[in-house]
Write a protein that binds this DNA or RNA. Structure first.
Lengths: 94, 94
DNA sequence: TCGATTGTTTTATAACATTAGAACTAATAG
DNA sequence: CTATTAGTTCTAATGTTATAAAACAATCGA
């Protein structure tokens, strides 16, 4: 992994974290300490389901979250590994 | 300081860090361990002076850098305090 | 199978970000 | 005062991002 590649990965992660709604999603998940669904988070944060789906995708694409399908629902959880690798201590500061 | 205000401050900082050129500027400054001028950094990173000036402004606005005028030149340095407050350990990971 | 539930993708739109050239401002040296 | 140096702001072009409604897809219960 070159320096430049790591830089690009870093900027991608920062880009994902630079949106207030995605930060809210992360906080909600962190404080809940459990998986949550798209609908559940959308309702809590008052955003449309398509918008939540869009943000979920971005979070997943940079490895900040994991997803698990179960029946109709899709459960989201934080990927602690990525947070620890790139932003040690960040989650606990939320 | 409310949670929401801190969130906005955080997303602003992440936004500033989500650009590859600004990340490069930070790395160059960190490794140089000294102040550097706009022209010096622009030359090193091969970006126009107006673009460097634009990025300098963003960095300063969120408190990631300090500036000092001396004669015609303007010297930039990292504000370790802000990095430590919001991203402890980040600079050393660069 | 049908209808309900849940989430995704498409589409359109509006807002914002990045870039560099040109014009401008500030400081200094001669 | 004038020319030079260093940086800023304006402008226009180009590209990116966030949003939600609408259409679509997948799953499940009856």
């Amino acid at each position: 992994m070159t320096l430049e590649q790591t830089d690009l990965q870093r900027t991608e992660i920062f880009k994902v974290l630079s949106d207030i709604n995605r930060l809210r999603i992360i906080r909600v998940l962190h404080h809940a300490q459990r998986e949550m669904t798209c609908g559940e988070i959308g309702e809590k944060l008052n955003i449309s389901k398509s918008t939540v789906s869009y943000h979920f995708k971005m979070l997943r694409q940079v490895g900040l979250t994991n997803t698990r399908r179960a029946s109709q629902s899709k459960y989201l959880s934080l990927n602690d590994q990525t947070f620890n690798d790139f932003l040690p201590g960040f989650l606990d500061s939320l």
